[in-house]
């Protein structure tokens, strides 16, 4: 896991006992892990009693970046401890950080998974079967035809999800083909899950 120089400097500030006393350190850590999930908690940051706001800002930024990098890389406790020891934090501060990190790790990772581009997700399907008797081109067609409408949810421009639907028409053979391919996909998944 690689951490940038500014983040390391910020964390070394955090380890300095003269700048951050123990209870202030704990308050900052709690705040960091809380505001990740509730953005309105940011305002509580101003109430942390530290000597200068620049130091607070730098340390806070460093801790947030480091915690999220660790969650992104799925770092184990050993590498985190070694990096924090390089920044000269003492062992109970490191253990505080690690307990909080372990508690919140899955939530952070699930939040990080929100970032990405995903295809629209099919949630529902509507189908109707029609029977075509004749059309303008042929005098007598007596064949069924199917209209399938797939309801999907997808990403909107601003991050909200909106539901769309995709419609298409197909004949019996095409529908059988589609169903056959879906079944093939299911079977191949099951085969992989059985380890072959």
């Amino acid at each position: 896991m690689q951490v940038s120089k500014e983040v390391l400097e910020g964390i070394s500030l955090l380890g300095d006992v003269t700048v951050f006393q123990d209870d202030v350190f704990k308050q900052l850590l709690d705040l960091v892990f809380e505001e990740v999930f509730t953005p309105l908690a940011c305002s509580k940051l101003l109430s942390v009693p530290v000597v200068s706001p620049m130091v607070l800002k730098k340390a806070h930024a460093a801790v947030v970046t480091f915690a999220f990098d660790a969650a992104k890389w799925n770092a184990d406790n050993l590498s985190i401890t070694s990096i924090l020891e390089d920044c000269k934090l003492d062992s109970d501060r490191i253990s505080n950080f690690l307990t909080l990190y372990d508690k919140n790790k899955t939530k952070m990772q699930s939040h990080l998974s929100n970032v990405g581009s995903y295809r629209p997700h099919i949630v529902d399907v509507d189908w109707t079967e029609h029977y075509v008797i004749k059309s303008s081109n042929l005098e007598r067609i007596s064949l069924p035809s199917y209209i399938i409408s797939l309801k999907t949810e997808s990403l909107g421009q601003d991050g909200s999800s909106n539901s769309d639907s995709t419609q298409f028409v197909c004949t019996l053979e095409q529908l059988q083909d589609l169903v056959g391919q879906l079944k093939d996909a299911v079977k191949s998944l099951e085969r992989i899950s059985q380890g072959q």
Partner: peptide, 19 residues
């Protein structure tokens, strides 16, 4: 993950830190 609610593209902003 099953579904794409709540997802968004990567959006970065710089963090200005006093040096």
């Amino acid at each position: 993950r099953e579904g794409c609610r709540g997802t968004h593209a990567l959006h970065t902003c710089n963090l200005f830190v006093p040096r």
